Amino acid sequence: MKYLFFDIECASVFKNTAKICAFGYCLTDEDFHILEKEDILVNPQGGFHLTDRKGSQGLVLPYEYKDFKKYPTFPEVEPRIRALLEDPATLAAGHATMNDVKYLNLEAKRFSLSSFRFDFADTQFVYMNRIGVFNRQFGLGSIAEDLGVEFTPHRAADDAYATMKIAEAMCREEGLTFNRLLEKYEIRTGRIENYEVRQNESRAHAAYVEEAQKKKEERERARVEFHNYIDREKRRRRKEGILKNKTVCFSHPLEETLSASKPLAAALFAEGGFYGFRAEECDYYVYFEGESGPRIKSAAARGARLLTEAEFAQLTGRESLRG
């Protein structure tokens, strides 16, 4: 068994296009001895439009952009790339591999080429299964630092090499081959075929997704119940009180904690206040201590008074009612 660790750079990425300009790879044997390492540079046949994840300009690739026009086009290098990825004796792997596989898929469609067909592993997904954390992404650099792998972002082939060293470090820590490591964490590799891409999956990730969905549904039910409670109780609002003609808004986590939100809502109505669901339009914004996020910032920007639920309970003459 051989392993093909690869990384792709694009001149531009949009919803339906990804113009590849570099395919870097590091081919090893099962013991991570390097057999080949190379950057295959590609004429993207289009301008460079490089942004970060927020869409801001600023990403810089470690290549001379003016040189790309002299490189072969994707259809010209595709047979070589395909041979590397589709070798039946080789398992392809990358970091956040779904992105790179999608780029290949888009380029195949762009140039009316046949679909790629290969299985692929994802070292980021393996790392997430090892530490049991699925609610965030881990950059190549942060994983490398955690595993003691030296990493300097540079060319695609160097990123592929760093991905290989991360796989090697995880295997070394557990005394397993890469394939055995996948088996230990019950990871099913992803696959591309017929222009459809299936992501990597595992039992642990499936359990996380199921639990996250249950919690989401519970939050949604609580929000509906809270909205209904507000619609009923607002009819009992007193005309006078310390919150007369003031609008109060709760954070979403507070709204969803009905044991706290309902009594506090009753208290604000008893003090002549109105309830509003828009943080940017309130006079008081109430939240659990330790919360942060855009809604708090919106309320603060408006000049609203920010209070923890305990402070609001004290303001309205109630004890803290968090359940």
Rank of each mutant, 00 (worst) to 15 (best):
E145W: 08
E145L: 10
E145R: 15
L147M: 09
L147T: 02
L147K: 05
G148C: 05
E150H: 12
F151V: 00
F151K: 00
F151I: 00
R155E: 11
D158R: 06
D159V: 03
D159I: 06
A160C: 01
A160T: 08
Y161L: 12
Y161T: 09
A162S: 11
M164A: 10
K165M: 15
K165T: 06
K165P: 00
E168N: 11
E168I: 09
M170D: 00
M170P: 06
C171N: 08
C171Q: 10
E173W: 11
G175D: 02
G175Y: 04
L176Q: 09
F178H: 00
N179K: 12
R180S: 14
L182K: 01
L182C: 09
K184S: 08
K184W: 03
Y185W: 13
Y185H: 11
I187C: 08
I187H: 04
R188T: 15
R188M: 09
G190C: 01
R191K: 12
R191D: 02
R191Q: 09
R191P: 05
I192F: 00
E193M: 02
E196D: 05
V197R: 04
V197T: 11
R198Y: 13
Q199I: 03
S202Y: 03
R203E: 12
A204M: 15
H205G: 04
H205Y: 14
A206R: 13
A206D: 12
A207W: 05
A207T: 10
A207V: 13
E211A: 14
E211C: 02
K214I: 11
K214V: 11
K214S: 06
K215Q: 12
E217I: 06
E217W: 03
E218L: 11
E218T: 00
E220F: 04
E220K: 13
R221S: 09
R221G: 04
R221M: 09
A222R: 03
A222F: 01
R223W: 01
V224T: 15
V224P: 06
E225V: 06
H227P: 07
H227M: 13
H227N: 12
Y229F: 15
I230R: 06
I230W: 07
I230V: 15
I230L: 11
D231V: 09
D231S: 14
R232H: 01
R232G: 08
R232N: 07
E233M: 12
K234S: 10
R238P: 07
R238H: 14
E240G: 07
E240Y: 12
I242N: 00
I242T: 13
K244R: 15
K244F: 07
N245T: 08
N245K: 14
K246S: 02
T247M: 07
T247S: 12
T247C: 02
T247Y: 12
C249R: 00
F250Q: 01
H252M: 15
H252T: 15
P253F: 05
P253H: 08
L254D: 05
L254V: 08
